[in-house]
């Protein structure tokens, strides 16, 4: 087990290395003097010179990269160009809101996906199945910002059940916090619900054709027991993979939804920073998103082995 984790970590190193190069290049591929980009409005010669020196722009590119990498390894992502706040602080302040939104969206997607996918698989070819598979294609076809706008129109503007957007911290008012998170979570989680449903369905169909399901029926197990005890645990193993990757992709998924619902999370910070040309913050967010994806990948593999006794890490 330990050797397996170590081997996976070693394999991750070159990928992580390439990721940091990519993030580094984000600024340096941008046409024009990075200093001008980094400076924004204040373009006095002194300021430009200060930036040049700070970034070591007079040095060769790989030296600049190594210096930058050294800072990152020590947890120093630099300072925001617009607010001069440390980037880690800027992201850290926004992270809880994004995590909450992502968690609620994931719960919503699983609440929809697992029952629907199971029913569609058990009643394969039925009207319910066709409806569910149709919904699955539809769910990934509607842009989540459009789902958000439609939800706002019907549930906020017309019925006045939910706020238009915004955020209330949980420790300030738990009820209001939940009221604010529901619509963005539905908008964000619907595509995931569609994908997870398809996975559950196809995985369930495959499992239901296995010999051990026939064994369970030969024991006289009622179909509910066959489906929910004998089949579901097997069927959900592959679903875990895709859910894990979705967790790894939370930041990215939240970008547009957070913008539509003015949700103060990392995704919206990314958009704001891009518009403000606050490249240090953008770099920090891209780095965070990429690494959470890589780590999620690793964790998925480990959880997989824990769920499926057939897999051994040797």
């Amino acid at each position: 087990m330990t050797t397996y984790v170590l081997r996976r970590l070693v394999l991750m190193v070159p990928v992580a290395f390439l990721v940091t190069i990519g993030v580094f290049m984000l600024i340096h591929l941008t046409p024009g003097d990075p200093a001008l980009i980094l400076l924004g409005e204040d373009r006095s010669p002194q300021a430009i010179a200060a930036i040049h020196q700070q970034l070591g722009l007079d040095k060769p590119l790989y030296v600049q990269y190594l210096i930058w990498l050294g800072h990152i390894v020590h947890g120093d992502l630099g300072r925001s160009i617009t607010t001069h706040q440390p980037v880690t602080t800027a992201i850290g302040e926004r992270l809880p809101a994004t995590l909450e939104l992502g968690a609620v969206a994931l719960i919503w997607s699983l609440l929809v996906a697992i029952p629907l996918g199971t029913i569609a698989a058990v009643r394969r070819g039925s009207l319910a199945d066709h409806l569910a598979t149709g919904l699955a294609v539809g769910g990934v076809s509607i842009p989540n910002f459009f789902i958000g706008i439609v939800l706002i129109f019907f549930l906020s503007v017309t019925l006045r059940l939910f706020p238009f957007g915004g955020y209330v911290p949980f420790n300030q008012d738990p009820f209001e916090n939940l009221r604010h998170v529901i619509l963005p979570a539905i908008a964000l989680g619907t595509a995931g619900a569609a994908i997870n449903m398809r996975f559950t369905r196809s995985s369930m169909i495959e499992v239901l054709n296995q010999d051990y399901i026939r064994t369970a029926r030969a024991k006289g197990a009622p179909w509910r027991r066959v489906v929910f005890i004998h089949a579901l645990k097997n069927a959900l193993i592959p679903v875990v993979t895709i859910v894990g990757l979705q967790i790894g992709g939370i930041i990215e998924g939240a970008v547009v939804t957070e913008t539509v619902f003015t949700w103060p999370g990392v995704g919206r910070l990314a958009v704001e920073s891009i518009f403000n040309r606050d490249y240090t913050v953008v770099q920090g967010i891209v780095l965070l998103a990429a690494f959470s994806y890589l780590i999620a990948n690793l964790l998925v593999d480990l959880v997989y082995g824990w769920l499926d006794p057939r897999i051994s890490f040797t």
Binding site: V19, G249, A270, A290, F291
Partner: peptide, 8 residues
Amino acid sequence: LLAFPALI
């Protein structure tokens, strides 16, 4: 490349 958040 896959690790990079596509939309961002």
